[in-house]
């Protein structure tokens, strides 16, 4: 284990600070005429392509995602890292909590589906989905609802549901207010809280499109996923409540814990996370 960790470290340090030499930003016209982008780095054709999806309001350049993508590509995998539009064409910046959030979970799942299709269209016979945080949530919903047949495996890091919980600010009151507004047919902005955002201006429908993916609903989603599923969590991730951990363990997913790591696998735990993920990828049939 220790030798493997050192190898990962060397692998990650080599391209440190360097942009991927063979990276290509792919603009993707979506069905609504809007444009999303993803970075595609082709790898060994014999190996499955890996799609890595960022967390809530982030981009593909979020550090955990970037380092993971680099490491995976360096291991010879083709890697696609989309940045969800979140209502902004060719979005390149993380979206602040205080920005207006008209995007929905469904839009994100649709975008993901289009990128999986795009990968399949590139000739990749096997596709592995890796997600981080709400990216894992999005992928889980995708896998449960419209999974492409070429997706052969999913590794979901720090998978957490929406809804009230530790370190999360949304409350039932927010949800109630949103539902009332939605019931009134009003499409006005409401100021809610969601995930780590204390202030989250959004139309009620947009807010609820996330909020409603609660622990219970997500447990149902996990149960419906048919591809091999691995959930990697940090042993120190405070958002991993006991009920959710229980739900995970009750799911078909193999739960793997990186001891001591937080929600973002910061510091040296990043390597532990990679050492956990790499065997899962290489073990992919």
């Amino acid at each position: 284990m220790k030798r493997g960790r050192t190898w990962w470290m060397l692998l990650l340090l080599l391209p440190l600070g360097m942009s991927p030499l063979h990276a290509e930003v792919i603009p993707q016209k979506l069905g609504t005429g809007v444009t999303a982008t993803a970075e595609y780095r082709p790898g060994d054709p014999g190996r499955p392509a890996v799609l890595i999806l960022h967390g809530f309001l982030q981009t593909r350049d979020f550090s955990t995602v970037r380092r993971l993508a680099d490491a995976v590509h360096d291991r010879g995998f083709s890697v696609l890292t989309p940045t969800l539009r979140l209502g902004i064409d060719a979005r390149a910046q993380s979206l602040p909590c205080e920005a207006i959030h008209t995007h929905t979970m469904d839009q994100s799942v649709d975008e993901l589906a289009q990128w999986v299709t795009w990968l399949a269209d590139q000739g990749h016979a096997r596709i592995v989905l890796i997600g981080h945080s709400s990216g894992s949530t999005t992928e889980a919903i995708y896998l449960a609802t419209r999974a492409h047949p070429k997706v052969t495996q999913a590794i979901l890091l720090s998978l957490v549901p929406f809804g009230p919980g530790p370190l999360l600010f949304e409350t039932e009151a927010h949800a109630a207010a949103a539902r009332q507004a939605l019931a009134r047919g009003a499409d006005t902005l409401g100021t809610y809280a969601l995930a780590y955002c204390r202030r989250y201006p959004a139309p009620p429908a947009s807010f609820l499109s996330y909020y409603d993916w609660s622990r219970t609903r997500m447990a149902e989603v996990l149960a419906e996923i048919e591809v091999p599923l691995h959930v990697v969590i940090g042993g120190g991730d405070q958002r991993m409540t006991a009920p959710w951990m229980a739900a995970l363990r009750d799911s078909p997913a193999e739960v793997m814990v990186v001891e001591g790591a937080n929600h973002f696998f910061h510091d040296m735990h990043e390597f532990d996370m990679l050492e956990t993920v790499e065997p899962l990828l290489t073990g992919t049939p």
Partner: peptide, 22 residues
């Protein structure tokens, strides 16, 4: 070059709020 600016151009429904608060 601010993404939110392009967001407002694409969907200006909430522009007054965004202009004032953002």
């Amino acid at each position: 070059q601010w993404d939110e600016v392009r967001q407002q151009l694409a969907e200006p429904t909430y522009y007054p709020y965004w202009r004032g608060y953002r």
